[in-house]
Amino acid sequence: MELQDLHKAIYIACKQEIDMEREVIVDEAKKMMPMFRELLDIISNRDNFDMTEEEYLELHQYYMALLQEILDGIEHHDSVALYDTLGYGMLEFVEMFLPEGEWERL
């Protein structure tokens, strides 16, 4: 999976939800689940990260918290929480691993 693809998927879903008033965020989040799982595999492999143990744990925990919020949001069809988590949590998390200028901010 390319992280750019995940970023693009989140960005488009958020744009559609608010700017285009299309109420798609719950369905789009469901479609993104395989990508989140793939990202979880990457995050869970300690060797992928050149950082201190403390920094790595923080990163891992933050991603797990984001995932939990997304799962809760999907379960309860909570589009406010999903938009907030995807658009301002997950999107910014993914951006940390992308080279500057290769993504558009919401």
Partner: peptide, 13 residues
């Protein structure tokens, strides 16, 4: 508990 505004960014959307 459903949020009516996001906890990260309540204003931006």
């Amino acid at each position: 508990f459903y949020y009516l505004a996001g906890k990260r960014e309540p204003k931006r959307p």
